[in-house]
Design a binder for these strands. Structure first.
Lengths: 190, 190
DNA sequence: TGCTTTCTTGAGTGATCACTCAAGTATATA
DNA sequence: TATATACTTGAGTGATCACTCAAGAAAGCA
């Protein structure tokens, strides 16, 4: 009996994710969202409940996409080459609306306000870190990385360098691809 | 004949800088500033003109302090040890209200809005990068770093890693000192 | 002390914030 | 086709935003 929505929910979430990703939490107003999603306030709140609720969905989508891209890449290239290629891929991805990591941006913006979304972002970053550690461990098993190194330590440093790269890539006049190449090269020496 | 202000302007600027540094541009309201600086709106606008104007002064203060700390450190420790100790110092500084770099936070928050303060932050980052390059060059002259490496390339990578470290240090449950140690160690291999 | 000049006060400005809700509209089932 | 059940609309909510300004208070000079 009911009337069905005229929108594609997944498409709306991706558009909202891109908006939040580029403009941040406070920098994205409901007016921005209404325009971007072509929804009036009533529909928006019926569909998503609140700005924060949609931001959380967007964060989850972002993080899951990142994890899946990493796993797909490993199946194609193997663990070491995945770790080497990932930095360059992330900053040259033309589908992405920004270079910097949405999780890092969210953390930096909301951590000081003790906003729950900062903790959500941190949890997603921890999941990413675990995945990086898994890749290092697989590379060690394959004999491509010194087996005496702690994969968790390697992952921690790798993730940190990756976040730095992605902040650098957001700047104008910085050769981020050069930095990405160096990160990849330093992995060859492990 | 005139009446003098009852406040210490430099002290106010430092307090405003710490507030902006932790809470960000949009995250800091005029009410926050009024409370932190103990000023009513009228005095605030007479003294600083606008929220943006004070933010810019705060950014300049932040950047100049950073540059000066680097130069002081070089006079004490020499170029290579300065580069090695700086990362750990920056994230364990107990006077600082946040771990992440205020210039990086400002850039990430305001770049997408084409806000002039984003460009200001980028300019300050470039000055920092130049100073890092100078330190690498001095380390080469002293025979502590392979003279065939381009100091500007080394500085670019160093600054990127430093920004990553400082984002990581903002997170809960991350051993940032471990990352700082690794950054320092990797400089020994140059 | 009186005058001039500046600083301080705080209620108030219009704009914008996230969000609500009653009325109108479209669609799947009966 | 009639009806029940959503979805869509958009004016409107109180709160908060950055900011203003007229009136009062204090300090330096005569």
């Amino acid at each position: 009996m009911p009337r069905r929505p005229s929108y594609d929910r997944e498409d709306l979430i991706k558009r909202a994710r891109d908006l939040f990703w580029t403009r941040g939490w406070a920098g994205t107003t409901l007016k921005d969202l209404e325009h971007c999603l072509q929804m009036k306030p009533g529909s928006f709140y019926a569909a998503f409940g609140s700005k924060d609720a949609l931001f959380e969905i967007a964060l989850d989508t972002y993080a899951n996409d990142g994890l899946n891209r990493l796993k797909t890449l490993e199946a194609e290239l193997g663990p070491l080459e995945t770790l080497q290629r990932f930095p360059a891929m992330v900053i040259e991805n033309e589908d992405a609306p920004a270079k910097a990591c949405m999780l890092a941006k969210t953390l930096l913006e909301l951590q000081a306000h003790d906003h729950p979304l900062a903790e959500t972002a941190n949890q997603h970053l921890l999941r990413m870190e675990d995945q990086f550690a898994q890749l290092f461990e697989n590379a060690q098993t394959a004999g491509k990385v010194d087996a005496t190194r702690d994969p968790k330590v390697l992952a921690r440093r790798y993730q940190s360098d990756l976040m730095g790269l992605r902040v650098s890539a957001e700047r104008k006049g910085v050769d981020a691809q050069g930095i990405a190449t160096e990160i990849a090269n330093s992995l060859s020496q492990l």
